[in-house]
């Protein structure tokens, strides 16, 4: 009947509109890299069309990949007692393709600091105490109490609030410590996004004096594990004897 056809056409139109809105919502939220929660999607995008949540999410995931070359990543973030499903975007195009073309130069300074913190944590065998981290940053002219650093502004807020909120870092309290002491690890976004092999290579270059990645034994093994997880072929391991 024509009503059925009209209803179907209407549904298709609503579907397309909601998919478009959800895609834009993802592209906009990447401005501050804050992950999207399931509840945000229902409240801000689907509103009274919650019944088609799954289909809209799938179609948005497809469009983000086909049209923009972005991967929609879903992670389960557990904090305190709750576990929440969160979503963010990763770039599917290789960095070689994107070099110089897709770059926001105003973000470079913060990227540098983020990379340094992630490198310190990774090289320190994936966890570091807050005090040790600040001691290392102090030597870079980045003291913990600096509220308006000319480049980074409020350092404590950036390291302990913003980066964790973006899921780049995870800041957890060490159990049964009084006064409370905290530890930093990579957050879900860093684990999904960062190329550990390139990171280790860059760290090794910074140390210089013809050091090789293999000379960091545990970290190098971690890179091999990471390569396998990514389904990359094993690098030809030098004879380890």
């Amino acid at each position: 009947s024509s009503q059925a056809r009209q209803a179907a056409a209407n549904d298709a139109q609503i579907m397309e509109r909601k998919v478009g809105e959800l895609v834009q919502y993802f592209l906009i939220m990447e401005q501050n890299k804050i992950p999207i929660k399931r509840g945000d999607i229902s409240r801000n995008v689907l509103k009274d069309y919650k019944s088609i949540f799954q289909e809209v999410l799938m179609k948005a995931k497809e469009s983000l990949s086909n049209i923009f070359g972005f991967e929609m990543v879903e992670v389960e973030h557990s904090s305190a007692k709750t576990k929440t499903k969160m979503y963010f975007l990763l770039n599917k195009l290789d960095s070689e393709l994107r070099e110089d073309l897709v770059e926001i130069s105003s973000e470079n300074p913060k990227n540098a600091l983020l990379w340094i913190v992630l490198a310190i944590i990774f090289m320190n065998e994936s966890v570091i105490s807050e005090t040790q981290l600040w001691q290392a940053l102090q030597k870079l002219g980045l003291p913990q109490d600096e509220k308006n650093h000319p480049v980074f502004g409020d350092l404590k807020r950036l390291i302990t609030v913003e980066f964790p909120r973006q899921l780049y870092l995870e800041c957890t309290r060490v159990p049964s410590t009084d006064p409370a002491s905290f530890e930093f690890r990579w957050g879900e976004r860093a684990t999904a996004e960062v190329d550990k092999e390139k990171l280790l290579h860059m760290v090794t270059e910074i140390y210089g004096n013809n050091m090789t990645p293999q000379s960091w034994r545990t970290q190098y093994r971690e890179v091999q594990l990471w390569r396998q997880e990514k389904g990359l072929a094993d690098e030809p391991m030098e004879q380890d004897g």
Binding site: Q24, L27, I28, M29, E30, Q31, F68, F70, L89, L90, N91, K92, S95, E96, E99, V102, E103, I104, S105, E107, N108, P109, K110, N111, A112, L113, W115, Q138, K139, L140, G141, P143, P150, V151, E193, V194, D195, K198, L199, M202
Partner: peptide, 30 residues
Amino acid sequence: QREVAIKKEAWSRFGKDVNSCFRRAPPFHF
């Protein structure tokens, strides 16, 4: 500690060099 003051240009250049470690999605500004 106080003497170390790395200039913004140095942070920016280093940020550009490490970009290849990340897979960032550029956002939509409107």
